[in-house]
Amino acid sequence: MSGLRSYIFKAAVRLLFFLVNVFALYLLLRGHNLPGGGFIAGLASAIALVLLSLAIGLEELHRVMRFDPMRMAAAGLAMAAVTGAAPLLFGRPFLEHFDAHLTGLPLLGELHVGTALAFDIGVFLVVVGIACKIMFALGKSTQRLRALVAEEERRYSAPVEQPIEEEPPIRAATNPSTPSPHVS
């Protein structure tokens, strides 16, 4: 009974996830001419992911996603920066954009494809990546799960560090106002 309901719920969320992402893509592509753009699309997409995580749980989502959203964000930043730096190769100023006008496309009608779009996609990736990363990290950590998986811990922390979800050190736990032991 409950299994069926949760199955329906999950299916509905998946459908919603798909729809929101399509909408986000649409927002991203039309951004140059109508309200929208990489940032808005990225946030919409991130919210869709959050919805999905609510439905299937953070652990499960991590299994499904299989990649580190932080890397996606870094890739997005790299994409934006490389898009900007590409004109340097031709001796043009940093961030100069070039474009082409495409007409007669299905669904979208006419489309303006330019390096500005690549830049905007970079923005999109950064926003999706970091919004997901911080939401998931905080969500896991506040639920007393390990915020970072082992591989991420290797990448984002020093070997001598420990996750904060554990009990804090003795000194802080007792009373923050006690002087540190090295003085007494």
């Binding site: 905080l138 950590s141 506040t142 904060i164 804090p168 923050p176 106002s177």
Partner: peptide, 28 residues
């Protein structure tokens, strides 16, 4: 956008302060 990034950082900082110092009050 910048404000969002900073706000997220602030949330994490407060969370960390809470875990380390076991308080939700700056006076402590």
């Amino acid at each position: 956008v910048i404000g969002f990034g900073v706000a997220a950082y602030l949330v994490f900082l407060l969370y960390r302060l809470f875990l380390d110092q076991k308080t939700t009050n700056a006076a402590d």
